[in-house]
Design a protein around this nucleic acid. Sequence first.
DNA 1: GACGAACGTCAACACTTGTTGGCCTACAGA
DNA 2: TCTGTAGGCCAACAAGTGTTGACGTTCGTC
Lengths: 199, 199
Amino acid sequence: MNASNSSPTDSGSGPARRRSGTTRDAILTAARERFATDGYERATIRAIAKDANIDPSMVMRYYGNKEGLFAAAVAVDLKLPDLGDLPRQEVGRALVTHFLAMWEQNEVLTALLRVGATNQDGAERMQGIFREEVVPIVVRVCPDPEQVPARAGLCASQLLGLALTRYVLRFPPVVALAREEIVAWLAPTLQRYLTAPSP
Amino acid sequence: MNASNSSPTDSGSGPARRRSGTTRDAILTAARERFATDGYERATIRAIAKDANIDPSMVMRYYGNKEGLFAAAVAVDLKLPDLGDLPRQEVGRALVTHFLAMWEQNEVLTALLRVGATNQDGAERMQGIFREEVVPIVVRVCPDPEQVPARAGLCASQLLGLALTRYVLRFPPVVALAREEIVAWLAPTLQRYLTAPSP
DNA sequence: GACGAACGTCAACACTTGTTGGCCTACAGA
DNA sequence: TCTGTAGGCCAACAAGTGTTGACGTTCGTC
């Protein structure tokens, strides 16, 4: 179905089109918000459409179906910066800092985590991000390739655990922590997972 | 399976009831399984009833409504043992060990985490467990009452992050870790969150 | 044996969901 | 000017949801 193509890349160029990208972006923004707060199932297309002030059928025309909408809403790469030139002992701190900035920048990652908890596709997407963003960093710091997956997994467990308790479950003490406090506490943990000799 | 009359499980009043607890327990078991794998919304009462080989209306009769069923399915206290008599330096290790045993014992906690990610009630229940099980342990180890919530929150972030990546998102490297490896890696982290001077 | 209560089933209700097709409107190019 | 195309809305569909009530069936107790 669909394959209606329309314009593939009209998000930025729209030479003489009608005013279209506006509502497309409105839909995406509303979708991200709903997915982030409600998860996949409870974020209904009707609610998203109402938030974007358009008809539910427009969502279908633009994004095919709900899965397509979700895929478009979370299609974003977090672009971790190149940490290759940092001293090895500072990678842990840089990782936490950037991770926090990413999560507080927009709601895409919260949506992704919330959906990943109940949706297989979401979980696999999360795995993909982990593999393409976290693992490469670990590779640079850890000389033994055999230990890379485990160390990366440990880092992910602490980072995602923080995101879970702070942005999803909203444990008050974790929400109350200042960003610098989080960095101060978590940086040594990650540094150890990255570079300490395997216990 | 007659169980004769000695089943004290039927929650209270009827001393000489009919054989009822059987299906009640079957429903609860099926519900835990479904909630753990599908989350709250996608775990339908019809599917749970089919798993338990009974009619959906029985679920309603026994547990009132879906919320009641969920509450009953996750109504379990994890009974962390008394760690008060342990040396302070070993509390971290004991915490991780027991946490792992709890999660692998049954699916209640996985269900709770999965639901908590998208359901407000589930999230609050998770907070309750955290407050009643984790915080008391931290209180015994940390002398400064003002630091207790933050330290407990940090512990929860690492522990729940491990559960998330291992039992919910199922990151392959984290799933592959042996239990002793997890203990070896996480125990120092928790120990530091518990007793190290605040950074 | 008779009675009543608990166990269990069936069919249906009211509602929400994702999804679809038809219709109207506005603008660009001829 | 006319026309085609895209933007947009409306009403409706089929499927699935939680939930309810009526009806039959079994068993303990009198």
